[in-house]
């Protein structure tokens, strides 16, 4: 299994510059790994105002659970929300805080 090398911050820069892809092979592997972290640890994006606002939230554990929003992580640009999710999951996967 691949492990994310926390020193490869160049991959974060690549992602930030083109969050929608396509990505280099190295970054594509990292993106896949970050999309495979345990469900209960996932931070996801919720569109809270159609085409206008996206708020990060915890992945609900079970059907029927209410969404838990991060009210301090609200974005008016979808890809800004994507970049934030990428960073949060990178930190969770590597244990290394990003500046």
């Amino acid at each position: 299994m691949h492990k994310i090398d926390p020193t490869r911050t160049d991959l974060i820069e690549e992602f930030d510059s083109n969050p929608g892809g396509p990505h280099s092979l190295e970054l594509a592997v990292v993106v896949n790994l970050l999309r495979l972290i345990p469900m209960e640890e996932r931070i996801i994006i919720v569109c809270t105002k159609r085409h206008a606002e996206w708020t990060l939230a915890k992945m609900p554990k079970a059907r029927g659970d209410r969404m838990e929003y991060y009210e301090d992580m609200v974005f008016d640009d979808y890809y800004a929300a994507v970049r934030k999710v990428f960073r949060i999951r990178w930190q969770a996967a590597t244990g290394v805080e990003l500046g």
């Binding site: 999309r35 569109c47 159609r50």
Partner: peptide, 20 residues
């Protein structure tokens, strides 16, 4: 997410289904 090649993004209607 790796099947759909996306970061889970829920629309308001989907949030409603999740909660109902």
């Amino acid at each position: 997410e790796v099947a759909e090649c996306y970061w889970t993004t829920m629309e308001p209607g989907e949030v409603f289904l999740q909660e109902h």
